[in-house]
Each structure stands twice: as C-alpha cells, then as structure tokens.
Design a protein around this nucleic acid. Structure first.
Lengths: 200, 200, 200, 200
DNA sequence: CATGAATGAGTGTTCATTCAT
DNA sequence: GATGAATGAACACTCATTCAT
C-alpha cells in the first residue's frame, strides 16, 4: 500500500511538467537538459524518472496537455449566445492572449514544439490534429451562420477557418520576435478584415 | 599565386551552407550534427572548420543569407507597374510559394530558426529585423497608395502590413504541419479578405 | 583519403582489446567501465568509439579472438608425429598453461565470460561451440587411435573427450581460486588417470 | 512481547535469500538489481534493508549458505559403510546432480560467484576454502583407504582429490553451456578413469 | 588545405541506498 | 516493521572541436 497519496503524485507530476514547460520554453526542447528541468523543479537528477520514463515522455505529456487545452476552446465559443459574434470578438480580442504574461511560456513552448514536429512525424501528426481541431471548431460556427442565413452559401467556410488559424499562429510568432508589436492594433486590423467577409 | 583560388573557397562555403540548410531543415539545428552536415556535403568533419569557426557560425551564415534574400523582396514588388495590385496578387499567389518544392527546405529551416531565435536573443533581434523589413516593404506600398488617394488616410497601414506578414508566417507553419492544405483556396480567401480593405 | 595507416588502426584496436581484457579480467565485464578501459589503454573516454560501437562489441571482439585462438589448438596437436602421445603429454603438461603468467588474464577473462554466457543466450551458444570444438579436436585424435587399433573400439571417445575438457576448465577455475595449487602434481595425476584408459 | 517474532524475521530473510539466489542465477550478481530481487520476493525496495545492510551482504549471506551446505558433504559420505566405494559411486552418480532441476539455479549461482571471486579477494579466499574443504573431505576418505591397505601408499591422495573437485567444477560449467551433454555417459567415463587408480 | 582519429565535457538514464510516512 | 518516492553518484555513449599527418 503506497504511503504516498495520489494527490502527492499528481502534484509532483505537475511540478515536473511546469518546470519542463518553463525550461523548454526558455531553451528549446532539445537544448533543455534533464538537469535543467530538475533544477527548475527543485528535485534531484534521478527524481524525474519516478514519474516519467524519459525526456521524450515529458515532452509528449506537455504536448498532450496542450492538445487537451485546445479541445476546450470550441466548447467555450459555442456556449456564447451569438457564436458568430463571439468568434469575431475573439478574433479581435484573441490577440489579448498574445500579451497575457502567464501565456508567454506557452507561446514559446508552442513554437519549440512546432519546430520539433517538423522533425518528428509522430509529433507532426499530433500537431496537425490540433490545427485541424481549431479549424473545425471555427468552421462549425461559420457553417451554422450559413445555415441560419447570416452568411452567404458561397462562403468557403473551411478556408476562412484555416486563414484565421494561420493568422493566430503567425501573430504568436510575430509577437515573440517583435515584443513591441501593438496587439490591440493588430486585433483591430484583423477584426476589420473579417468584417469585410462576415459583416458586422 | 595562391594555390587555392577564391572561387574554390566560395564554392566550398556554398557546398557547406547548402548541406547545412538541408540537414537543419530535416533534423533541426540542434539535432543536426556536424557529421550530418559533412556527410550531406561529402566532406570530412574537420574540413568544415577551415571555412566556419563553429556550428553556430554556420547557422548564422544561413540566417544572414535568408535575411539578404528577404531584402530583395521589396525591390521586386516596387518594380511592378502597379505595386498595390502586385501586392494583392502576391497575397493571393504568394501561397504558391508554400507549395514550391525547392522552398520546402527553406520553410522548414525558417521554422527551426524561429525556434532558435526564441532561445537566442541575438538571433531573435536579427529575425525581428527580417519581420520588420517585410512589414516596412509592404507598408511602403500601402502608404504610397494612400498618398495617391487610392486608399483612405484612415487606414492603419502599419498593422495591415503586420497582419499580412503574420498571415504568411502562419500559413507557412500550417502547410508544413498539414500538407494536404489547399494553398490555392487559402490564397483565394486571403485575397478576398484583403479586397474588403484594399478594394479590388 | 585517410591519413591514418591500417596498421595504426589495427594497433589502436589491439591496444583497446588488450586493455579491455586486462580490465575485464581484473574487475569482471560488468563492473569494468569504459573509463577503466580507456585509462588502462591510455586513451580518452570517447576514443573507444572510433573503433568499437559499444562496450558489448568489445566484449564480443574479445570473445571472438578467444574462439579463434581455440580453433588453432586442434591443428597444433594434429601436427605432432604421434597425436595420441601428444595429447597425453599435453594433458600432463597442459597444466603448465595454468601457471603461465601471460595467460593469467585469459584465465580470469574466460571465467568472466563463462559467467556472462549463462546470462546471455547468444554468448552461451558461442561459448558452447568453443567447448564443442575442443571436444571434437580431442575426440578426432582418439578416434584415429581407435581406427589404428591402438585403443579399443568400445571406448566412448566422445565422452572421454568431454571429460578432458571439463578437467581443463575445472582446473583453470581451481588454480584461480587456490593459487597455491601445485599444477605439476595435478598434471601427474591427470596423466595417471588417463594412462588407465589410454595405456602408456 | 515483541511485535515481530524471530520466526517472522527468519522467514523474511529466507524469502529474500531465495529470491536473490534465483535472480543472481538468472542475471548474474552484478546485473541483478535490488528491485529485481524485491520483485521476485514480492516485497518493497526499502524492505530489504531491514534485513541486510547492502546488496553485497546478501551475496555474502548466500555464499555463506553455500559454504555451509558444502560442509555437510564430508559427513554424509563418511557415514557410508564403505566410504571409498561410496566416493566412487558418487563420482559416477554425482553427475546426476548436474541434471537435478532444483539445483540448476545453484549451478548458475555458483558460476556467477566464482566470477565474482576472481574480482573480490575476500570472496576468493572464502571460495578457496570451499574448494579446500571439498578436497580435504575426499582426501580423508582416500587416506583412510591407504591406511587400511586398500590403496597404495604411493598414491598422491591430495591431488587425486583436487582432480576430482576440478572435474566436478568443470562438468558443472560444461553442462550449463552444453545442455545436451549426456551426464550419464560422462559419469560412466569418470567412474572408469577412477577405476584405473582406485580399483573397482 | 583536407582528412578523420582523438579529445573531453556533457547527456539521458540507472540503481544502491535513505528516510518520511 | 514495511513502504516506495527521492536522492545522487555513476555509467555508457555523443558530439563539437582540435590537430597530427
């Protein structure tokens, strides 16, 4: 019978994952060493291996969490009274996400992971699914608006959705490289571009 | 009379840089080893160090070339009879670039470099300049159109330019992760979005 | 074109193998570290890997050499004018081998390898072949003596050969554990036991 | 009243030692991990240290038991009505021991221990004593037969005894490496060799 | 200059041992 | 006593870089 509560184990996993995310974001997944992660987490060098079988497993766990977080996005937006309006608002305000201090590590991590994905087919497939999921979520809202007569049937909803996702990903990278970027103005411009198609 | 001609030296540099780009694109700058590059170039491990002082120097040389290539972009577009129309066309057609087989390695490399940039402030600064350069080139064209009365004075040309750059970067990543992406339809959508602002 | 002669490469391999044999003999194959071997050979830690892909490969190379050495044994004894007499002499004198200072490391190594073999099926199969080879060599001589009418047809030549091999292996271990063992007297006794069966 | 009875403690020791013997036999003393032993014994990693201060101590305890078992051998053979005949029988039948399924682990263990002994002077000394003990037991029987006039005074009883021990050790290794070995025929041959010296 | 073997600091991982529960 | 997570010193192996040829 373990004398260690499941809560303690979960907390330790959390500790390691958070440390790893911070270190991966700072140094990149490849340059980050197990020792870096342990130092960040305040545990000993071997201590990781009670909770994860390898460095790759940590990376995968972080990736899985990122993916899970992305899955929650569609539900959130669908819950709005007027999803189409919510989508437009978010396109304008989503750029607030780019400034959120608590998300900086995520943005950096994400970029590292994208770079890894190009190298690792398995990771690439999984990341592709994240993008596809985001696209589908947006497209679903657009399709409903088309069905409701609020958008023309001729609208290529799938590629409008793809475009929005690309815009988000591109803006994330841009903000990382050019911190002085004014995300509010960027949001305004995106909103204006979308207004030309979505109305509003 | 020097035994080794400058041409030979330049050819050797070229050989190494091309090999390095290919390997960096395939494996990532960190995972790629000097030996990988040598194998790709068909030279010996020590031979690199006659031409480059370190692996980092190779990466920097590649980056410098990428930057130089980007600098040629504004001039090309300015040379068009109607730069604004050329810009719009390119926004629609630029996505052809995403499919160009000879550019796939560049797209991959670029992603690896962006990831490195987050880790390395010097590289980040330099990459930021590339983005700023692209933005300025686009903005210059937009500003001229404003001056010529073809676009309203109220247009936030700087952030429209930023948006276009973000869209390009995002689309590049997207195409790498989701190869089935139909870049023609993506281009159509981008063109349509821009039409709402630029007219057309 | 390699600037290093094949002789140099062979010498380096030899250096490493000899060092490894010494260290394996002293510490056992498992306890011996790559660093031990490098220190013994006077080379740097990574230097081994130019010549051997892994520690296991070194062990296997040593094993292969031991096996090759064993293969030379039959030819040597067959070359004698009277192989049966030579066999008997060797049975008595072979125990001189146990004292030979230059073979002490081999005897120790051999014991380590036998221990490894029990653990590793592949190595076990290979070691079994060494034993079978030795047995066959001895049996061949005995069978010729039977064919020549010098030994009775009823003699179980196969198992007499096995017994001789077992005696050799057992004596090797014994001498390692009990260095004060008088191998000359041991040889006398073996010769006497064999005389009862082989005549002489 | 002690919460933990001596019986319980003894049983736990037994459990650990049996598990350790099994694992050592299977993997070798060095490759076997504490965790392997714990898994085999069905206890936890820390639990070992209540009963043994270290892994080495377990190995030593097993060795001590092996030595104790060997000490019982002389008494058993002396108890026979005709010890000399019993010795000859055993030499022929002893090879039955090689086939006994319940002794396979012991044979393997023994080989591992011999290998360790070459590495560890203390263990070597102790193992030497086991061999010396076996030799003395056999020699004692032979000397009595000499005293009783059944064997010639010129017989080198000490080295005949050593030879018998070597034969046993050698045969053990042989049977491990060459499982197809026919131990009955091997026994026959040994008996026949001994008959030439001991009569019978 | 080109070569490639040698170097040696550093990496991910293992495992005997400790100790809070 | 028993547990098993935590520790930290090794370990096998990698790789950017050097340098004798």
């Amino acid at each position: 019978m373990p004398r260690v509560t499941p809560e303690h184990t979960a907390a330790r996993r959390r500790l390691i994952l958070d440390a790893a995310r911070a270190v991966f974001a700072r140094k990149g997944t490849r340059a980050a060493t197990i020792e870096d992660i342990c130092a960040e987490a305040g545990i000993s060098a071997g201590g990781i291996y009670t909770h994860f079988p390898s460095k790759a497993a940590i990376r995968e766990a972080i990736h899985a969490e990122a993916r899970a977080a992305n899955r929650r996005f569609p539900a959130a937006i669908r819950a709005a009274p007027d999803p189409l309006a919510a989508l437009q608002d978010m396109a304008g305000d989503m750029f607030k996400l780019l400034d959120a201090p608590e998300l900086q590590a995520d943005h950096r991590m994400s970029l590292q992971m994208h770079a890894d994905a190009v190298t690792d087919p398995e990771l690439a497939a999984s990341y592709a699914e994240i993008h596809v999921d985001m696209m589908h979520a947006i497209r679903g809202i657009l399709d409903e608006a088309v069905a409701g007569g609020r958008l023309p049937e001729t609208l290529d909803t799938e590629y409008l959705a793809w475009t929005m996702v690309a815009l988000y990903q591109g803006a994330r990278v841009q903000k990382l490289l050019v911190p002085s970027l004014d995300t509010a103005r960027l949001g305004q411009m995106v909103r204006r571009l979308l207004a030309g198609v979505l109305g509003g």
